[in-house]
Structure formats: structure tokens, C-alpha cells
Design a protein around this nucleic acid. Structure first.
Lengths: 203, 203
DNA sequence: GTCTATACACTGATAGAC
DNA sequence: GTCTATCAGTGTATAGAC
């Protein structure tokens, strides 16, 4: 057998690959069955790795789930940062936000992370610290109400309580995310405007 | 011929009471932890009844959950029937629908049934027959698009694909239902108009 | 004695963890 | 692979009204 030590670089590569396999499998399984419905066995089967290897990289089922929630919040935060940092009016930023959130929520593989967020929301009560963690990690949502307020002054956004409008906008994304669980065809027909429209001033 | 030792009405009363205790406890537990996260033990503790008694009235955990989903769909269907049967314009029916759905979703104890619907949606894939059952039981949702079309012709509803608008309206209710899992204060500030507004023609 | 609501120790399977 | 806890579900016994 080959006893020669692997280079540090090679080791790192193997680690990264294994972790990617585990998180990828966990993402699928947790998204479909939820935290309690998902089993480590199922994650091991989907990833094609052994029990020992999975537990080598993650100490527990709970930590794997936390890791996915962390990634989901990061994806969300990055999307918001990208949208809100463009130069332009408040309304243009809102339109950009809809465009980016629409893309990552409904058109590519990252949509699974938004299913994870929903699963975390609906089952997080039994997992210590999770709800608090999500509240902290979702602090960027607070950027929307002032943006709406600015757009209202410019006459672009519909009148009304900016906090409620902001929640409505976010609830709409979450509501459509639930449609993904039912494989509804309707999701294929929506556009960023579907979301922007609830904030648009048509008066 | 009634051979029962206790009076029939007495027995019936005991049964009804026990079943109510079981379903009430199951409603709380399933709503909070989801199907897989809820345990029979937990349901027994909350109901204050023994294992034997619970299994005397329900053959399995799955059947209890199905029973709750069934009740939820019935509550939903009754609400729609009540709203859509009033005399008035299409728009008035939509306003009535918002009013009733808002009431049962966010202001009284039946709101737990809507959490059950969300739990069933997010975890139903692993429960044989559940998704199909929910699709069938939610057939009354198909009544909304034609109603929107009528309201559009009258100039009351916003222009756009009635099917997408209908889905948007329902997704908004579901999205706000998710807020209930997080005990968000914002839910106390919304009104039926929050939902009606996404369909309202303000042009 | 008979029926029925109720109780609870028990089983086999499977979970997470190491 | 192996351990332990816990899961859903069952078999059997008891209490009390007729």
C-alpha cells in the first residue's frame, strides 16, 4: 500500500470534496423531509459516504442543519448587499432586489436553501438557539422599510406603513417558496415583477 | 339493539370528550414540531391521556395527522363557501373572502389548522397519499381566478393573469402564516386589506 | 357476567452517535 | 460495527356501569 504522506494541498482537496458531498446531500434531504424527517442514514446514502466519514466532518445532525441555515442566510445577505449597493433610486434598488431574489429563489440550485429556511422556520422551535440565530442572520431585512419610505416620497412606491409593506413583500417570497414543495407549475410563470408589483405605486 | 352497559349517550359523551382532547393536543404538537418532529408520547402528555386510550381512538400517528389535515381543509372550504355565497359584486366577494380568511388564519384558535397545512406542505412528501389528498381538498381555490376575471372587467381588480394573481393572493396568506411560527408582532398589525390590496385596482 | 373506557408494560425497529 | 435511547405500535389487564 502507499504509505507516502499526501501533500497538504491534496488533503485539503479531499476534505473540501467530502464536505461538499455531505452538505449537498443534506441540503436535498433536509429540504424535502425537514429537520426531524431527515435521517443521517438517508444523508449518508444520498452522499454515498459512510457513517464514520460523515461523523468525522460533522459532530451531529444538528450541526449539519445549522451549517445549511448559515449558508442560506449568507446567500440571502449577499443578494441583498448586491441589490442595494447599485447606484440608482430607491425604486431601482427594489427592482434589482426583486430580480436577484427571484433568480436565486426560483431559477437555480440555490432554491433549495430557501426551502431549508422554511423548514427551519416551521420546525426550529425544538432546536435550541436556531430561531435566535435566524433572527440575527436576517437583520438585513431591516434595510427594506427605509428604502420603501424613500421610494414613497419619490412617488414610486405605494402609500402605506413601510414595515407592513416590507413584510408583505417578504411574505410573498416565502409563500411562493411553499409552492416549490408542491411542484406547482405556476412558479414557472412568475417574474420579478410579480413581487415588485405589491410595492409599486399605480395610483 | 343496544347492549352497552353505560347509557349510549353517556358513552358517546366520553368518546367525544376523549377525541377532542386527543385532536386538540395533536393540533398543538403537530403545528409546533411538524409531522416527524411530533411524537405520540408528546401528544399523550399534552392531552393527559394514556397511550392505550389514544390508540383506542386512532389507529396510528399518520391517521391523527390526516384527520387534522382533513379538518383544516374543511375549515378552509367552509370559509370560501361563506364568502363566495354572499350577494354582491365579484369584488365584494373578494373583500369578504379576505375578511373571513384573515379572521380564521390570524385571530382565533383555528389559526393552528393553517400551521398544520403548512407542515403538511413542507413534510408531506414522505406521507403516502397526503399531497394528493391536499390537492383534491383544495379544489375550491380554483374558484378565485374566474372571480378575479369578473372583478377585472368591472375595473375593480388590477389587470394581469388571473391565475397568477390568485396564486399571489394565496401565497401571501401562506407567507404571513409562516410569521406565526416566529411569533412576529407584525401579524397583529395587518388587516384584511393587506391581502385585498394585492388584487385592488389603483390605476 | 358482560361491555367498554382506560392504563401501562412490553415489543421490534430504528434513530443518532461514536 | 456497536451501543443506547427512543420511536410507533400492541397485548393484556383493570375499573366500573349495567
Amino acid at each position: 500500500m502507499n504509505m507516502s504522506p499526501r501533500g497538504q494541498e491534496q488533503n485539503q482537496q479531499m476534505r473540501t470534496k467530502a464536505i461538499a458531498k455531505i452538505t449537498g446531500a443534506a441540503l436535498e434531504v433536509f429540504a424535502e423531509y425537514g429537520y426531524y424527517g431527515a435521517t443521517m442514514k438517508h444523508i449518508m446514502q444520498v452522499s454515498g459516504l459512510s457513517k464514520g466519514l460523515v461523523y468525522h466532518y460533522f459532530p451531529s445532525k444538528e450541526k449539519i442543519f445549522f451549517h445549511l441555515v448559515e449558508s442560506a442566510l449568507e446567500i440571502s445577505k449577499n443578494a441583498w448587499t448586491e441589490a442595494l449597493n447599485i447606484s440608482g433610486t430607491a425604486w431601482q434598488k427594489i427592482e434589482k432586489l426583486s430580480e436577484i431574489l427571484f433568480k436565486i429563489s426560483f431559477t437555480n440550485e440555490s432554491s433549495l436553501y430557501f426551502l431549508i429556511m422554511v423548514q427551519a422556520t416551521t420546525q426550529g422551535k425544538g432546536i435550541p438557539g436556531l430561531m435566535e440565530y435566524m433572527t440575527e442572520g436576517g437583520a438585513h431585512f431591516d434595510l427594506l422599510p427605509p428604502l420603501i419610505r424613500t421610494a414613497q416620497k419619490a412617488g414610486d412606491a405605494v402609500p402605506g406603513d413601510p414595515v407592513i409593506l416590507s413584510t408583505t413583500y417578504l411574505a410573498l417570497f416565502q409563500g411562493y417558496t411553499l409552492c416549490l414543495f408542491q411542484d406547482k407549475d405556476i412558479v414557472k410563470k412568475i417574474t420579478p415583477a410579480t413581487f415588485t408589483d405589491v410595492l409599486r405605486n399605480r395610483g
